[in-house]
């Protein structure tokens, strides 16, 4: 992987930047060039809220090579307080305690290391909200 593929994602992964459609108000994460709801092409940058709740989850037991050292790990889809849904790991808790409806908060963490380039990729993970 070339570093460009990693740093191109910094606005989303480091700063949780979403695009808010200036016409219909739909919030898109990641930001896009055209709104799938109304077709408008003008957006303003808006930061995602950092809390939400788990809609569904799983525990990955057979992991890809970049993640074998942390398996088993939980992956969840959470809906944030502004309605945006996203996928990330849910960490800092026993995987057996993860539940649908659980309240989570977003934290900035190291996600993976590219085996060939050695690039450390950072981004967002969910943690229990009470944590």
């Amino acid at each position: 992987m070339y570093s460009a593929r990693d740093w191109r994602e910094y606005p989303r992964r480091y700063r949780l930047e979403a695009g808010k459609c200036k016409k219909c108000g739909k919030i898109l994460f990641p930001a896009r060039l055209i709104c799938p709801k109304c077709g408008a092409r003008e957006f303003e940058t808006e930061m995602l809220p950092d809390t939400g709740k788990v809609l569904t989850f799983t525990v990955i037991r057979t992991a890809p090579s970049q993640f074998t050292d942390i398996a088993p790990y939980a992956i969840a889809i959470a809906e944030l307080t502004n309605g945006v849904k996203l996928t990330a790991q849910l960490v800092d808790c026993d995987v057996n305690t993860v539940k649908v409806g659980m309240e989570v908060r977003i934290e900035f963490r190291r996600v993976q290391t590219d085996a060939y380039s050695g690039i450390l990729s950072y981004g967002y993970k969910f943690v229990p909200k009470w944590y």
């Binding site: 994602e9 990641p30 569904t56 799983t58 990955i60 992956i75 889809i77």
Partner: peptide
């Protein structure tokens, strides 16, 4: 690739997410 697989989601993992939602 950037918004699912990057975070460690696998193919069985994605269908597992659907299964948990369906079970719920």
């Amino acid at each position: 690739q950037e918004y699912e697989v990057f975070h460690g989601a696998t193919f069985p993992g994605l269908y597992a997410l659907m299964a948990v939602a369906h079970i719920e």
